[in-house]
């Protein structure tokens, strides 16, 4: 497959979040991602859309899945991909976050994929570099490609997003996945229920355009999709919830609780899963019900679409055409 001109304009230099994207921006990205799903299932998965481009994956927080998904996406588009993991200790040596950005910028990357543990850190870095920046997760703020891949997964399985009812369950307070999904699903006309114990639901969450529930029975009622979030162990030792046992009893997804949702409701999880903490292991592996593997596959396609959409806005894109 050879490079083809984008048939839409993505009106942003960076992809820092879902906030600010219109329904048509989202639809364009999903449509493009659809074509990459097909490509990724062929034997020859390579294109040259990003040939000559340099993509740096800058991860201040370790993440095997997201980083490898971005790496594969870049490579399949023909970019040169470099992974940089910056441990917090490197920053403690005295180099500030912005020093790191300036250093990297001097290497003239075209695309910078950044994950950072602090909300707003990716936007801060984006101000200091001259390339296109993709947010691969910043603190508890946003994780836009996760929301896009979730949307693509749902759209391919149920044919639409508009009019669906989707429950997002678990640790909403600390979840960038929940925020980005809420923004995207609202923009696309889906209804979102946020479900979790009061200690894990942030203040005024209902004003973000969601219905809030504290029981799975009420929160899952009539839902087409049940999206479970990862619960981190350090939050389950009495600080925000008393124990894993109690959490699983009240909020862990099993077949019985899934029965509160619509018949044929599907289950999603951004991974990595804590089996037996937020989700029943056997349920997670049931491909009739679980979309978890689809999500991983869609992740690569969505990231290819996002990389291409941003690359199309880079200056000197025409030079690769060689028209003299």
């Amino acid at each position: 497959m050879t490079s083809s001109a984008l048939n839409f304009t993505f009106p942003f230099r960076d992809l820092l979040g879902i906030e600010g994207l219109s329904a048509s921006d989202i639809t364009n990205l999903l449509d493009l991602a659809d074509t990459y799903v097909d490509l990724n299932r062929q034997i020859d998965k390579k294109t040259d859309v990003l040939r000559g481009r340099t993509q740096i994956n800058l991860f201040f927080e370790s993440s095997t899945r997201t980083q490898s998904s971005f790496e594969l996406a870049g490579k399949r588009l023909g970019a040169d991909v470099m992974n940089m993991s910056v441990s917090s200790s490197a920053l403690n040596k005295g180099e500030t976050l912005l020093d790191t950005a300036v250093t990297l910028n001097a290497m003239n990357p075209d695309l910078l994929v950044i994950r950072h543990g602090d909300s707003g850190a990716v936007a801060l870095l984006a101000q200091k570099v001259s390339c296109a920046v993709l947010n691969a997760g910043d603190g508890a703020h946003e994780h836009p490609t996760q929301a896009l891949l979730d949307a693509l997964t749902i759209r391919r399985r149920l044919g639409k997003l508009s009019g669906l009812k989707i429950a997002i369950c678990g640790d909403i307070t600390h979840s960038r996945v929940a925020r980005s999904n809420l923004l995207l699903l609202n923009a696309m006309g889906a209804q979102v229920n946020l479900v979790g114990p009061r200690t894990l639901i942030p203040a005024d969450a209902e004003r973000l355009g969601a219905n809030i529930f504290h029981s799975m029975r009420e929160g899952l009622e009539d839902c087409d999709i049940v999206m479970m979030l990862r619960i981190q162990n350090e939050r389950m030792q009495g600080a925000l919830i008393p124990s894993v046992r109690e959490y699983y009893h009240l909020y862990g997804l099993n077949r019985e609780k899934l029965g509160f949702a619509k018949p044929n409701a599907m289950v999603m999880h951004p991974g990595p899963m804590n089996r037996g903490a937020e989700i029943d292991s056997e349920l997670a592996d049931d491909t009739e019900i679980s979309l978890i593997r689809d999500q991983v596959e869609m992740g690569v396609a969505v990231r290819m679409a996002a990389l291409e959409a941003l690359a199309a806005n880079l200056p000197n894109m025409m030079q690769s055409g060689g028209t003299c």
């Binding site: 909300s119 910043d138 603190g139 703020h141 925020r179 942030p202 203040a203 005024d204 973000l208």
Partner: peptide, 15 residues
């Protein structure tokens, strides 16, 4: 400040 904006920004609020 704890409230809608903190929730949207993903920052921890002070009640």
């Amino acid at each position: 400040h704890e409230g809608e904006l903190a929730t949207r920004l993903g920052l921890t609020g002070i009640p």
